[in-house]
Every structure is written in C-alpha cells, then in structure tokens.
C-alpha cells in the first residue's frame, strides 16, 4: 500500500465531495409538487463521500506503509504513448482517421520495442485501412475521412 497516494487520493475525494455538496446547493429546487428535488440525492452522496474520506484519512494514519521492492516503472514509454494518444485525439478530426491511426500505431509499436519497422508499418497500415474500409465503406459509419488536400 502506498501511503502518499492514499493521502492525496483521500484529500481529492474529500474535495470532490465538498464541491458536489456546494454544487448541489446551487441546483434549483423546483420539484413539481414533490418535496424531494433534484438536489437531494447528490447532496447526500457528497456528504457520504466526505465522511468516508475522513474515515480513510484516519485509517491511513494507522497503518504502516508496506513498501515492497519498488519496481522501476517505464515512465518514458508511458508518457510517449500517452502524449501521442492525446495528439491522436486532437488531430483525428482535422487530418482524418486513417493517417492519424497509422501514425499513432507506428509510434506506439516503436516505443514499445524498437526494430522490425516494416512489420510495424504493415500491421499499422492493415489496421487503419481495414477499420476504415470495414466501418465506413461496408457498415456506412462515420469517421473523419481524408484531409481536404488529399481528396
């Protein structure tokens, strides 16, 4: 168990609970002849979340952190892939599904393990073109198509 994370998480959830309580006070209380408006349920839940967070905060003070062997995490790989997926999402609509997916997969494959570039290119091309062909051409779904300068 990781004490630091538990503390941060507890405080975050405490804040979320409080914010939901404050937020629910601002919801209009109109209830159309009923005593229970749309604000009651979220308010109660926020309150319970706050109480539970306080309980967990006390619990984190009691137990001792059990630090096992710290595994070295692959932060570099993770961030490369995560940031490229954010760019994937941003660029999806401007330059289309096939190009973005192809590029994302190449970056992803090569980040996981360098080498065999041709195999990566083939798999990425098959997936991006395959999904686009199947979904858009056969099933008539909508995906952002090619960018304007290519059409």
């Amino acid at each position: 168990m990781n004490k630091t994370f538990d503390r941060i998480a507890t405080l975050t959830f405490l804040a979320i609970g409080v914010l939901f309580m404050i937020g629910s006070l601002r919801i209009s209380k109109s209830a159309y002849g009923s005593v229970v408006g749309p604000n009651v349920f979220p308010f109660l839940l926020g309150l319970i979340l706050v109480l539970l967070s306080v309980k967990l905060l006390f619990e984190t003070m009691r137990y001792r952190s059990t630090h096992g062997e710290k595994q070295r995490l692959q932060y570099k790989k993770f961030w490369t892939i995560f940031i490229s997926s954010i760019f994937y999402a941003i660029l999806l609509e401007p330059i289309g599904y096939v190009i973005t997916t192809f590029l994302f997969l190449i970056i992803g494959f090569q980040t996981m393990e360098k080498g065999s570039i041709w195999k990566s290119i083939i798999i990425a091309a098959c997936f991006s073109l395959g999904v686009y062909g199947l979904y858009v051409k056969m099933l008539q779904g909508t995906l952002p198509s090619w960018p304007i300068w290519l059409r």
Partner: peptide, 10 residues
C-alpha cells in the same frame, strides 16, 4: 497494447 488503445479510441 497500442492496438488496444487504437481500438478503444475507435
């Protein structure tokens, strides 16, 4: 793994 991400996003 990258393929699962791509499938999720699709």
């Amino acid at each position: 793994l990258p393929l699962i991400i791509a499938i999720s996003i699709f």
